[in-house]
Structure formats: structure tokens, C-alpha cells
Design a protein around this nucleic acid. Structure first.
Lengths: 342, 342
DNA sequence: GTTAGCACTCAACTCGAAGGAGTGCTAACA
DNA sequence: TGTTAGCACTCCTTCGAGTTGAGTGCTAAC
């Protein structure tokens, strides 16, 4: 069977109506509120076809229809083609350039959650491809060095390095100069074994120390120990019974608090980014099983070169995709603006 | 009317039973399961008295009794007097000395939540009374300095300071020496206007810079911008219907995510610490209105000198106070041990 | 191909009866 | 005087029956 123009119209009408009301949609409603001028009986026939094709389904025999995951997928896909999403006016939007990345991210998450009334999450930009701007080793006490690493985007990382042998002030200074001249401007990916070996050689007596320091620098930059993710508006999920009935709320709240799993979703989204930076996961499409009744819309943002992170909005499958995508577009561009001034 | 020994026994029996079952307790249950050897009728009379005195109440006419807030308060108070809580064996306890405070705190919160099956929160130790161990200013670029401040407990803070006038390498070095010699070993509270003025004078040309730096140091140390609080096991609240019915879950989840309000609770707990470090807030006693159906048990912990923080456990009023208090005691002492080795 | 009409289905709601846990009160008992 | 047995009463909870209404599928006519 083919999805002809009329079927498409009816399918879209069903979905739109369901998004608005959250109730199963009957044939009569469609017949009345569309410009198709068809009787409910005709609609019924078409709807039976659409059900057979898997786009919609009935919760029970004598109920209206609701979109299936496949239906939502169709809707989102055609919606994405049709028009370039217009940007959405954000309420209470106050994004200021922050020295502290953390503050900015929390702000963004909050703004997004408040505007959409869904749950929002945001990941700190990954810094693998970030250039090292500044490295400094200082002596905290005879047994410990403090490593401070600043990478592009003014993200600062610290690490305390225990050292076996003492090191003189003079040597420490040399080491600092060495590190800065050799590593400055490199990305973490570029700091490979060859460079490390060369460094060790040049460091001479303190060659063994170099290894520790490089490890510390690596640690500091990758920050993988714990995916830095901020959430906001988790409690918005309580607006949607389909997400909170039957103890589902507990699982979701857990997922949002633990953040571990959110990381995998963000990873996935970064890897499969199509180009617009916006992706929609419906139900099982997301790699998190507690979100099987949710839809997730993710957007990749970029703060300067190579600083990529992901914003995600989690809501019920019947979320207002249009608005959500618009909001994310707006945020994307605002963030872009914000960091272009750098 | 007086609360004689028998009434106390009955009251405790009612509460203990209710804590176990979560169901209103009838006179017959008490008569059967206590060693009082009284008939249910007698118990009924006593229970009527206890109700009149405000210790217990009836959800409806023909139901058993449940403890009132006043009843819980009595129970907790006598329980605290009676015996020194014994320490509780913790499951999956693995606290390692962490360089990163953050990791340690998250660990603690998780362990506590998992062991008690309630929601847990923990605040980073306040650093107002912490001694400055190390200060360093470095030049990031001509317009920005990077201030790194390490305080006792190896907590590292960074701050980027924009500067108006350029500063020579030599002067920067002098400034660093000045800052370290003058501020080292002082607590934030001790760095007062007098010291700042003296510093400015000594800094000479860069006097104005000193002000900025001190502010940055202050900023870095107080970290009040956002109370650093970590939570774990928020979803445990879903185990208790009385906390999640009627949309209460949403409020609570919000409170836990926003953390703002948790800060006030932790503040309150630090200020009114009696000495044991353990406090119990029942219902309205806690300064957070979304927790009016909860009990909160807080414990002050200390990591080395002056590094005080608070752990809190939030659960239903019918929480297992005995176990919760025991768990907190255990954590308190483990943390103490951990940092005594310093 | 479209539509009107009709029988059918099924969730949701209402209502009342039955069940049961627990109380308060009274009167008898030690 | 304190304790207890007994009983009537209350009120929540559960369950099933009946009702309603939205919506469907099918058929026959247009």
C-alpha cells in the first residue's frame, strides 16, 4: 500500500491533534477540523489503512488512534524537510559570557527547560580537540607539584602530582618552559608518544617526571572520569502522566541524577550528527532504556573551534517538536554569537 | 495529663510499629505484641489520652493511630538519649582519599543513599576558615591573569582576572612573592581590610591590581555563588507513597535538582549544631516547605581543621531513624579517619 | 469512491452493597 | 479504681453491576 497525499494529510492531522490534546483522535474530529471535506466514514477507512501500515495505533478497540513511533518518525522527518524552523523568542533569556563555563551551561539548561517545559540537559564541550594555551607546574610542598592547565575557551584544569624525587627551583622553571614551548598550541590528540618521548629526552634528569606530568595533563584535559553534564527541569516530566505512571518516574529521575547514561546519549548524538546539529530520537531510538516512552531532541553546539557539546531536551513522545527544535536552533545561534566575540 | 511510663511504652510501640508497617496501628496490635499484658480496651483508653495530648492521631474515625510530628519528636528525642547509637556496617563502602574533593563527596552521597534507601545530599566543606596554602598569579595573555589558589585540604580554585595595565614579568614575580608571604597560612576571615591596605601599599605601582586579586581570591575561596551540593538517590523517594502522592514528587525532585533550597537547610544545620553533629528535622521543622512530609537527618562532618560540611538524609517521617543516625555516625568517623592521616 | 446508518466494543464513571478494621462507650468484674 | 468483654457504630476499601459515550467496522446505498 502506498502513502498517498491524502493519507499523509490525515496522518499529520491525527498527529498534530494528538500532540495538542494528548487524547486518542477519532475519525469524526479529523473530518470536522480539516479542509479535506470527507465524512468520518471515509476517514475511518483511511485510518484503518494507516493502522495497517503501522503509522498509528489504537490503545483499545473502541478508542481513537494515536501515533506509533513510526508515525512520529514520519512526522518529524517531513517536518524537518518542509521548512527551515524559525527561531523562537526565548523568555527570560540572559546568557552572558561567563568566565566559568559551568555557570553558563547551567544557565542554558535552565533557560531551555523553562522555555520548553520539558527536561533539559547539557554537556560541557569536549576538549579533546582543544588546544593547550598554558601549562604551569608549581611546587606545593616537597612531595607534591600542582599542575595547572588552561585550554582554549579558558577552561582551567588542576591536578596534584605526587613526585618521588625532589626538584630544584631552577629545574622546575626549565621544565615549565619546556612544557609550554613544546605543548602550547597542540591539541590533546596531537600529543602523541613521539612528542612525549622527545620531551622526556629533553627533560634529562627529570625524564621520569615528564611521564607523570603528561599523564596529569591528559587526565586534566579529558575529564572523562565523570561526564560533565548539567540538567534542569527534571521535574517537568511530572507534567506528562505517560512518563510518570507505573513507577516510570523513578527510573527517569534516576537517569537524570546519575548522568552516566545521559553521557552515552550525548556521545551517540555527537557521533551521528548529520550537519544541522539537530537530531530526534523517538522512543527506543535513544540508547537509554528508561527513555523508551520519551522523545529526545539533541542539538550540537559549538563554542569556538572544536569545543563541541550537546544540549538535549527530553519529553514525552507527544512533545511539541516544532517548538523544541526552534528553541534549540535559537540557543545554538545565541551560543555561537556569544563566542564569536572572543 | 501526664505522660507516665505506660503511656510512653504504648506511644513507642505505636511509633515503632508504624515505622515498620507504614499502616495505622490499632489497639489490638499493641495489646498482642507488647509485654504490657493489657487488653485492647485498656490500650484504647490510653491511646485516646495520647491523642488528646497530641502525640498520635487518627487519619479517620475508624482507623488506627499514626504518630503526629510531636510523637516523632518525642520518639527521636528519647531515642537519642537512651543509647549511644552503635555504628552501622556499610555496604559497598569504598572511600578512598581523593585528591578531588568532588569525587569523594559524590562517593559519600552515593554510599549513604544506597545504604539507607533514602535520598542523600552532601555539601562541600565551607572554606571560610580554611588556610591559604599557596597562591600564584600567572599571565595568560597581556590582558588576563590566572589566579590559582590552593587552600588546606588541597582544594584548588581558579579565577581569571582581567587587568587594565600591563605588568612586567619581574613585577609579577614580586607580586607572587608578596602574596604568598603575606597571605600564606591566613584564613579568609583573617584577610581583612587592614591586611589588604598593607598589601596595596607594598605592591606600589600595582596597588590597584592587588584589590582585584584579593577579590578574586575571595571569590575563589567562598564559592558561595552556588552552594556546592551533591545529591544521590533522589529516586528513593518513590519508595514512599506519602512523599510522591498528589504531585508532591515533582516538588521534591525540583528541590533536589535546584539545590538552592538545600543550601538553606545545610546552613541551618551548621548553625544550630548541638555538638554531636547530628540533628533531626521532622516535617515543618526543616526550613524547606516542599519537605513538610519528610524528615531530614543531618550530620556535620569535619575534614581536618575547620573544613566543615553537612550530610543530609531525606526520607519519609516514618524513616528508620535508628539506622539513619547509625549510618551517619559511621560516615562521620570514616571521614574523620580518612583525613587524620594527612 | 464516498457516505449514511447501524450494531458493536470497551474504557470510564457511578452507585450501592458487602466486608472489615478499628473505635468509643457501657457495664461487669477483680 | 483500674481493667476488660461486648456491642453498636463509623468509615475506608473493594468489588461488581449498570450506564454512558466515544469511537469503530461493516454494509448498503448513492
Amino acid at each position: 500500500m502506498e502513502l498517498d497525499e491524502r493519507k499523509k494529510k490525515i496522518l499529520k492531522a491525527v498527529i498534530r491533534n494528538y500532540l495538542e490534546t494528548g487524547e486518542p483522535v477519532g475519525s469524526r474530529t479529523i473530518s470536522k477540523y480539516t479542509d479535506l471535506n470527507l465524512s468520518s466514514a471515509t476517514i475511518r477507512n483511511e485510518m484503518a489503512d494507516l493502522e495497517e501500515m503501522g503509522y498509528i495505533l489504537q490503545p483499545h478497540t473502541s478508542a481513537g488512534r494515536i501515533p506509533s513511533d513510526q508515525g512520529y518518525r514520519f512526522y518529524v522527518d517531513t517536518m524537518m524537510e518542509e521548512k527551515d524552523r524559525e527561531f523562537v523568542e526565548l523568555k527570560e533569556m540572559l546568557l552572558e559570557r561567563q568566565d566559568k563555563m559551568e555557570t553558563l551551561l547551567k544557565q542554558v539548561a535552565k533557560v531551555v527547560a523553562q522555555n520548553t517545559q520539558y527536561a533539559a540537559m547539557i554537556s560541557a564541550p569536549s576538549m579533546h580537540r582543544n588546544k593547550v594555551k598554558f601549562i604551569q607546574l608549581s611546587r606545593l610542598n616537597p612531595e607534591q607539584l600542582l599542575a595547572v592547565i588552561v585550554v582554549e575557551g579558558n577552561v582551567i584544569k588542576n591536578n596534584i602530582i605526587p613526585i618521588a624525587d625532589e626538584i630544584s627551583d631552577e629545574n622546575l622553571l626549565k621544565l615549565n618552559i619546556l612544557l609550554n614551548t613544546q605543548l602550547n598550541g597542540l591539541t590533546m590528540e596531537e600529543i602523541n608518544l613521539g612528542i612525549i618521548a622527545a620531551l622526556k629526552q629533553q627533560a634529562g634528569v627529570h625524564g621520569s617526571l615528564i611521564g607523570e606530568v603528561i599523564d596529569a595533563v591528559g587526565d586534566a584535559i579529558k575529564a572523562d572520569d565523570d561526564p560533565e553534564i548539567y540538567t534542569s527541569g527534571t521535574n517537568n516530566i511530572f507534567r506528562y502522566p505517560e512518563l510518570t505512571d507505573n513507577g516510570k518516574a523513578s527510573e527517569l529521575v534516576g537517569t537524570f541524577e546519575e548522568k552516566q547514561q545521559l553521557g552515552s546519549l550525548i556521545q551517540e548524538s555527537l557521533e551521528t550528527d548529520p550537519g544541522t546539529g539537530i537530531q530526534v530520537y523517538i522512543g527506543d531510538e535513544a540508547p537509554i532504556k528508561s527513555m523508551k516512552d520519551c522523545s529526545v531532541v539533541t542539538a550540537t553546539y559549538e563554542l569556538g573551534e572544536g569545543m563541541k557539546g550537546t544540549i538535549g531536551i527530553v519529553g514525552p513522545k507527544r512533545m511539541d517538536y516544532d517548538k523544541v527544535i526552534g528553541t534549540l536552533r535559537t540557543i545554538q545561534s545565541k551560543l555561537d554569537e556569544l563566542y564569536k566575540k572572543e
